[in-house]
Design a binder for these strands. Structure first.
Lengths: 125, 125
DNA sequence: TCATATAGGGATAAATTATTCCCCTATTGT
DNA sequence: ACAATAGGGGAATAATTTATCCCTATATGA
């Protein structure tokens, strides 16, 4: 496990939410769990660009931060289900607000982002 | 300048907002500019944990993404002021929602975060 | 017997992000 | 002459985060 070398700031609300929501896929994980996709394999299919490994790691962090719970069914083949905790549910409206802003300004965002990516293999469609 | 090797996803609103808002200090920069701290040196004093360098870099990215404008006064010593664009202003309510959630759940967040930091030199006060 | 699906972990490499250090301009104050 | 302040940039390195690859286990279906 990675051990942080720089102590994080936990001064204000923005620092705090950052600590639990940063991570490339965490917001999407929360969202998909919210919309009923509870099993790890479902989540992996929903987010195919993420490696299986990171999703597991980020799910574990979400669990440690008490935003989701993990229920293991003692069957074989194994079955696991994630659910939002009551605490986790309170962050959903915030995520919805993020997504809504992104959707509302989709065209403009796509435009300014693509304009400033130096990369090569963009599919500008 | 760093050239990305992995093409970002720009599928949904969450991807898009992530592209412009990710970056350790961007949200705070937008917020402080919003609250009237416009000059680089002010922002650096407001965010002392960030190196001067990153703030410049992230400010430039915010400018490229058209969330802020940079006005240079041709005086000496130099004077520069950042302002939110109309587009940038539309993201402020979203940032406010993030901060508000963090503030509302401050204690619990601090608790679960500190519980799972492996580090050593925490000032748990 | 072999592939698939289920869930997950360890080790390592690569990608990305942030920090540190040192540099430049010009003016004002000591 | 020298330091401080204003704004900024290049290069190298450190820190952090993700990705890749390979491994475990059991059961079912071809």
């Amino acid at each position: 496990m990675y051990e942080r070398k720089i102590t994080p700031n936990l001064n204000c609300g923005l620092d705090l939410i950052g600590e639990v929501l940063y991570g490339k896929w965490k917001i999407r994980l929360l969202w998909f769990i919210h919309t009923g996709h509870k099993r790890p394999s479902e989540l992996q299919r929903k987010i195919p660009d993420a490696s299986r490994r990171v999703l597991n790691i980020q799910l574990k962090e979400l669990e440690e931060h008490e935003l989701v719970t993990r229920k293991i069914y003692p069957v074989v083949p194994p079955k696991v289900e994630y659910s939002l905790t009551e605490f986790g549910k309170t962050v959903i409206p915030v995520i919805a607000a993020l997504g809504q802003w992104g959707d509302e300004h989709e065209e403009r965002l796509r435009d300014v982002i693509l304009k400033h990516i130096v990369g090569s293999d963009l599919d500008i469609s």
